[in-house]
Amino acid sequence: MSGEPLIRWDWLFAHLGPIAERVGQHLYLAAIAVSVGFAISFALAALSIRRRKLYPFVTVLATAAYTIPSFAMFAALVAITGLSVFTAEIPLVLYTIVLFVPNIVAGFDSVPWDVLDAADGMGYTPGQRWWRVELPLAVPLVVAGLRLASVSTIGLVTVSAILGDSFGGLGYYILDGYKRHFTTEILVGGLLSIGLAVIADLGFVLLQRLLTPWAARRTVGG
């Protein structure tokens, strides 16, 4: 790889179209995984909150799933589901669940009892109490889960490149650049995928500011 500039700008400018497509694929794969994972996790978390005895089972299963490397799970699924969008999405969704459920459960656990009592005393119905008191107060930890899950998913999408050229988002360029000893491709794929993760993280921080304006005010007011 020596004797060549670190980045061949001519290659980069000649491939802006395909690069944009890969960015799109990357975001598409990550967005599906995070939204499906979030929906499943919310249901699992709600169940765990109501039936506390279930929670240890959920966490043990989640931890066990996490010890199976993403790389192995992608490859193993090819044998079962063939090469379809499910092959990429099933592992991605599973990993988001591991990150989401503890955060959502902790979010609702963090709502103080006296606040709930006060809401009951003010005559809120259970539905109103959940929507207007519990959910807003749980938002910071739920968003913390969203940040973790989206950042980790954007990273894991790159691994799906091992499934073949039609997967991987920007991970395609990392693997292809490695195989062809072409540094520019590796740098484009690697740096852009890290950039996407950072942008997603900042986006959720902003979302949390918008959803919980009182939190920022309290910090500023000291």
Binding site: M1, S2, V151, S152, G171, L187, G190, I194
Partner: peptide, 22 residues
């Protein structure tokens, strides 16, 4: 700490190649 954890290992391994091959 969170930023460090955001670094995807797949990308990190790939990005290191041009430098470690030197």
């Amino acid at each position: 700490a969170n930023a460090w954890r955001a670094l995807p290992s797949f990308a990190v391994i790939g990005l290191l190649v041009p430098f470690t091959t030197v």
